[in-house]
Simulated assay, not measured.
Amino acid sequence: MVGDRMPAVDQLVDAHVHLWDTAAMRISWFRDDLGLPRRVAPDDLAAAVATAPVTVRAAVAVQAADTETEARWLARQAGAHGPLPGPVVLQYDARPDVPDAWAGMAQPVIDDGVPVAGLRLAVPGGAADLSDVAGLDRLCEGLAATGRVLETLVRPSQLPGVAALASRHPALDVVVCHLGLGAGEPDRAWRDALAGLAARPRVHAKLSGLHRAASDPAVADEAARVAAAVRAAVDAFGAERLLFGSDWPMSARVAPYAEIVDRTARALPALDDAGTTAMWSRTADRLYGGAVPFTSPG
């Protein structure tokens, strides 16, 4: 892969990619000035990952917004295009007016038998303790009972809230996107919160969304910042509870796909063979149902 970091790895599972089509559904946050394509399809993903230094065997497609129309579109893409993207994680949007909808917006999709590997709680602008998320404990109960994963997109100050949630639901696998840090600075408060989170044995985290453009005026030493964040994550979780995610195509604004893989590899401390394989593929296989092609939902 890169240098002598991962001599035994010849394939990976990308645990965090996005697809969308703004002509087919509304993406609430999408703006032209973000410099993103209006349509990102499986063929585009396949072209991007083909540049990687090793084979990308599968990718976990995370819903970009929070509508049922988008959820069904994303599931169709996964069902019709083989291993890429692969498993699907849909957004959680509460539906308190529907008593049996523990999965919120995604409930009718799940009830129709569409393969869904997990749901993502994307609330970085919400309360630090997650108390403003309707139906949160019921969501966790439903996910645990059906063998699905809870993903979280949160800011650093919300990590203790995620830890408390994991403590209340010890049978649930939780995956924190972007280390709960993203492109931020790995300061002491974040490190302490990460360590508290890692004390819950079924919490995992993605090495995703960490990179900034080298031309960013805020970047003094980008490689050192990312390496410090990754080192803290390895120290807290161990490599076996970490997953690689590119955050493509959001990451394409920072660097090409192959460079994101390369930067992540360079940021890692030395790992043994078991930790290397776990971080790059095995943990994603375990959490997302084998990371294999799903049958088309039709």
Rank of each mutant, 00 (worst) to 15 (best):
residue 108 P to G: 05
residue 104 G to C: 00
residue 140 C to M: 13
residue 154 V to A: 01
residue 200 R to Q: 04
residue 206 K to T: 12
residue 207 L to A: 10
residue 209 G to Y: 00
residue 198 A to Y: 14
residue 143 L to Y: 06
residue 184 G to S: 08
residue 178 H to K: 15
residue 196 G to S: 08
residue 160 P to H: 03
residue 142 G to F: 06
residue 158 Q to K: 12
residue 126 G to I: 14
residue 181 L to R: 09
residue 200 R to Y: 00
residue 164 A to R: 05
residue 123 V to A: 06
residue 164 A to P: 04
residue 142 G to N: 12
residue 211 H to F: 12
residue 105 M to L: 08
residue 104 G to K: 03
residue 193 A to G: 07
residue 162 V to M: 08
residue 202 R to Y: 10
residue 188 R to M: 15
residue 110 I to T: 02
residue 200 R to M: 02
residue 99 P to H: 01
residue 161 G to Y: 05
residue 198 A to I: 15
residue 167 S to H: 04
residue 111 D to Q: 03
residue 129 D to N: 10
residue 191 R to Y: 11
residue 138 R to V: 11
residue 179 L to N: 01
residue 108 P to I: 04
residue 104 G to Q: 02
residue 163 A to P: 02
residue 178 H to V: 15
residue 207 L to W: 01
residue 141 E to S: 07
residue 195 A to K: 10
residue 137 D to S: 14
residue 157 S to Q: 14
residue 130 L to N: 06
residue 168 R to C: 05
residue 103 A to G: 09
residue 183 A to M: 15
residue 208 S to F: 01
residue 155 R to Y: 15
residue 185 E to L: 13
residue 212 R to E: 14
residue 130 L to P: 04
residue 169 H to M: 06
residue 156 P to A: 13
residue 184 G to I: 11
residue 192 D to N: 09
residue 160 P to K: 03
residue 178 H to Q: 15
residue 133 V to A: 15
residue 172 L to G: 01
residue 211 H to D: 14
residue 154 V to S: 00
residue 153 L to C: 11
residue 167 S to L: 00
residue 138 R to L: 13
residue 145 A to Q: 12
residue 182 G to Q: 12
residue 124 P to E: 05
residue 199 A to M: 02
residue 105 M to H: 03
residue 187 D to E: 06
residue 159 L to G: 02
residue 193 A to M: 04
residue 209 G to P: 01
residue 185 E to T: 09
residue 164 A to D: 00
residue 160 P to Y: 01
residue 101 A to M: 02
residue 186 P to I: 14
residue 127 A to H: 07
residue 166 A to R: 11
residue 206 K to Q: 13
residue 145 A to W: 12
residue 121 L to W: 00
residue 193 A to C: 07
residue 178 H to G: 15
residue 156 P to T: 12
residue 211 H to L: 14
residue 202 R to G: 10
residue 159 L to W: 04
residue 97 D to Y: 04
residue 164 A to S: 09
residue 190 W to S: 04
residue 190 W to A: 06
residue 142 G to Y: 10
residue 134 A to C: 10
residue 170 P to T: 11
residue 148 R to Q: 11
residue 191 R to D: 07
residue 115 P to Q: 08
residue 135 G to F: 02
residue 174 V to K: 03
residue 122 A to E: 04
residue 137 D to T: 14
residue 170 P to Y: 10
residue 201 P to G: 02
residue 140 C to A: 14
residue 213 A to I: 03
residue 209 G to F: 01
residue 142 G to L: 11
residue 154 V to F: 12
residue 206 K to N: 08
residue 166 A to H: 03
residue 165 L to V: 06
residue 209 G to R: 05
residue 122 A to T: 01
residue 185 E to Q: 15
residue 111 D to M: 04
residue 102 W to P: 09
residue 108 P to F: 03
